[in-house]
């Protein structure tokens, strides 16, 4: 892994922002297409993009499908996430695209003047509501856990299949991403100056330290969980299309 990281560092500075633009755009187009045009449930499996399943009032325009009614929550969570903010400020806004002197000279090449920079004081001050998206996302994560268990405890009995392993891997990664969040870290202990002065301080401190350890890998969890969401959904679509048959490991 470290050799891959070293090789990645040797690449020209523009590779990383361009890769982020490509990956996030591709993911955005893929997820938008499937949730608007395709169903996401096959047998006992619910695609993570379609969880939790909710009813949809008929008067809504056609493109507001049932998953769209939920998806704004995880989307908002990722859009206001401290890691993704770094990623899109660098990759999409070139503000700055990278840290080297040459790259910094290309900071927002379209801006009228370099002094017009507002940072997170103008429109992006809205990113401060990240914590509210966190609260809502925790509820969605609970449903994803529930649905992962439904792939194991089916109406026909207990089973473990390749698909259910994939569903569990996905929710573990999504949970790691969600609970390594900087806002969560602040909520559990970062907002306190003195643990020995408050009730339950020791638990707060231990939780804070655990979340801090998870938090050092927050960018990795962000990408791993994005890939696992994609893999889970593609696996479901392949089963739907009859291209693959789920492989049972226990039961089934």
């Amino acid at each position: 892994m470290s050799s891959i990281a070293a090789a990645w560092k040797r690449l020209p500075w523009w590779v990383e922002p361009m890769a982020v633009v490509f990956a996030l755009t591709a993911f955005g187009i893929y997820s938008l297409t499937i949730v608007v045009f395709y169903p996401g449930v096959f047998q006992e499996y619910v695609s993570p993009f379609y969880s939790p399943e909710v009813g949809r009032p008929d008067w809504l325009p056609w493109f507001i499908t049932a998953p769209v009614l939920i998806l704004w929550i995880p989307l908002g969570f990722r859009a206001t996430c401290y890691y993704y903010r770094k990623a899109y400020y660098r990759a999409f806004f070139w503000d700055p695209p990278a840290c080297q002197a040459k790259a910094q000279q290309l900071d927002r090449p379209w801006a009228r003047s370099t002094e017009s920079y507002k940072g997170e004081r103008a429109l992006f001050v809205l990113n401060n509501i990240h914590r509210y998206f966190l609260y809502a996302t925790i509820m969605v994560v609970a449903f994803l856990w529930y649905e992962a268990f439904l792939t194991v405890f089916t109406p026909d009995g207990f089973q473990i299949t390749v698909a259910s392993l994939l569903w569990f891997l996905n929710i573990v990664l999504v949970s790691a991403y969600t609970f390594s969040c900087h806002s969560f870290r602040h909520l559990v202990g970062g907002n306190k100056d003195c643990y020995s002065c408050i009730r339950g301080g020791n638990v707060r401190r231990k939780t804070y330290n655990f979340v801090s350890r998870l938090n050092t890998r927050h960018p990795q969890w962000a990408w791993y969980s994005l890939v696992s969401l994609l893999a889970t959904d593609i696996y479901l679509r392949l089963m739907q299309a009859g291209v693959i048959t789920d492989f049972p490991i226990i039961g089934g």
Binding site: R85, K86, G119, R121
Partner: peptide, 9 residues
């Protein structure tokens, strides 16, 4: 000016 920082690290 903490709000001017856009956490690009």
């Amino acid at each position: 000016g903490l709000g001017l920082c856009n956490i690009t690290k």
